[in-house]
Every structure is written in structure tokens, then in C-alpha cells.
Amino acid sequence: MELREEDLNGVTALSVKGRIDSGTAPELGQKLEGVVSAPRRGLVIDLAELEYISSAGFRALFIAAKRANETGSRLVLCSLPGKVRQLFEIGGFLDIFAIAGSRDEAIARVR
């Protein structure tokens, strides 16, 4: 898994490349915790280059989304590839997370 963080005029965009599994989820969780703990922050998680995500990864996203609600930050996921979207669907997560089709749409939604 590779994480790339960019600051786009006050919005943080985090791109996740590769695989989120029990081995890599803790690193993702730590990174997300740092970003969503800042109050009223906009965070876009770009999953365009994600191969797959297991339940350990969903746990990390889930905790970050809850934390974002507490701190008044906005978190939107975007650009889910087909396989990743299928995993979100199986886990019943499509309605739980805010999900945008593109990065631009996600940025507009967190601003």
C-alpha cells in the first residue's frame, strides 16, 4: 500500500494505492486519525488505484468516518474501481460512507 497526501487549498486529498488488508490497515488508520482529528477539515480519500480492501481496511475507514463526524470534518471517498465498489456493496458500506464518482466531485462536496 502506498499513501500520497496532498493539500489542495485546505482540503486534504489522500490517495491510496495497492492493497488495504490486515497488514497495511494500521498505517492507513494512523494517517486518517491524524487528518480527521483536525477540526472542520475536508478530507477526500481517492481509491482509484486501490486493488482491494479487506475488513481490516473497512474498520480503519469506519473509525475515521466516525471521528470525522465528532470533529465536524467532512470525509468523502471517491473513484472506487469495480472490484473495490463490489466489496463496499457486499459489506453494506455504499450508504454508510459519502462516496463520489470523481475526485473533483469529492473535493466540491467537502469544501
Binding site: 475488513s55 473497512f58 474498520r59 469506519f62 463526524n69 457486499i90
Partner: peptide, 17 residues
């Protein structure tokens, strides 16, 4: 799998997957 972000328990998903 029902409920909102706040209501849903974390975990129990692995075997389901």
C-alpha cells in the same frame, strides 16, 4: 448490515466476506 454509521457495530465482517 443495517443502520447508520453511528449505529453499526464494527467487526463481524471478515467471515461474511
Amino acid at each position: 448490515l443495517s443502520g447508520t454509521l453511528e449505529e453499526r457495530p464494527i467487526g463481524g465482517l471478515g467471515v461474511f466476506f
